[in-house]
Design a protein around this nucleic acid. Structure first.
Length: 266
DNA sequence: ATGGTTGGCGACCAA
């Protein structure tokens, strides 16, 4: 099974890029964030035409929005909480009925958190911290197995998940309050599947700001997108690929897709 | 300390 996570930054604008991703990489499941489209306006026919017959999505006008596109049958989760009391379309869950057995899948778009890393003066940062805490508590009260968490977590937890660790310690996405909370969330029972393939001392990015003339030359990236799995799935991990070329596709998202291959389950 | 760019929408805000 080939799984992709991608913050597409407007699904309707980037349908041609979704098609390119699909034809070149042939994923079985794609998790999208920032679809920026209401459910009524979701491009259902175009997505089905790419081979994704099984869908679960939740969108709103202008902001946020998450979607799971699948070639494999799925059952949409109905027990996902309303985080921070806001129905703002940052999480969908589903059970994927894969050939070797079911896999639970969660697709998250964690709040970006604004610019000022102080929850007392920045409500967006307070929202971000509380969101991660609530999600952590939810998973802490479960015994997850055969579970995959993906998405744009908007936090780069490790020193080499950013281009300059020291300089970014005060920048939202890499501050200690965020990275500590992300670690706590992960420790509710998950393994960082991307770092399973790339050692922590190697740089690893999935996002490069639009605000760079030449993103490749400056290479001021961050790893904001993640794939976590429960330990029982680690033996099934077969390969990982950050599709860095997608940052140069026509009219690109500022995030690139991350691909994870799983061996058949038994 | 500041500016750099993009998307969505509607005459700015979020990232």
């Amino acid at each position: 099974m080939r799984l992709v996570t991608w913050n597409i930054n407007s699904l309707r604008l980037r349908m041609p890029l979704l098609e390119k991703l699909t034809t070149t990489l042939q994923p079985d499941v794609i998790c999208l964030q920032e679809t920026k489209v209401t459910d009524e306006l979701f491009p259902l026919d175009a997505v089905r035409a790419l081979g994704f017959e099984h869908l679960h999505y939740k969108g709103m006008k202008s902001y946020n929005g998450v979607a799971i596109l699948s070639r494999l049958p799925l059952s949409a989760a109905t027990d996902t909480p309303i985080w921070y009391g806001k129905e703002d379309c940052r999480h969908v869950g589903a059970t994927i009925h894969a050939p070797g057995g079911d896999i639970a899948l969660h697709d998250f778009y964690v709040p970006a958190g604004g610019d000022e890393p102080d929850p007392a003066i920045n409500p967006k940062f307070a929202h971000k911290l509380a969101f991660v805490e609530e999600v952590t508590n939810w998973f802490a009260h479960q015994k997850p197995n055969r579970t995959v968490l993906v998405g744009d977590f908007n936090i780069a937890p490790l020193e080499h998940d950013v281009w300059n660790h020291k300089q970014l310690l005060k920048i939202v996405s890499h501050t200690p309050p965020e990275t500590e909370r992300l670690t706590n969330w992960q420790q509710t029972g998950f393994v960082d599947a991307m770092r399973h393939f790339v050692p922590p001392q190697d740089k690893l990015y999935t996002w490069w700001s639009y605000r760079n003339r030449d993103w490749r030359k400056s290479n001021r990236g961050r790893r904001l997108d993640h794939i976590w799995v429960t330990p029982d799935l680690v033996p099934q991990l077969a390969g990982m690929n950050v599709v860095q070329d997608a940052r140069d596709w026509p009219s690109p998202s500022d995030h690139v897709p991350v691909v994870m291959d799983f061996l058949p389950l038994s």
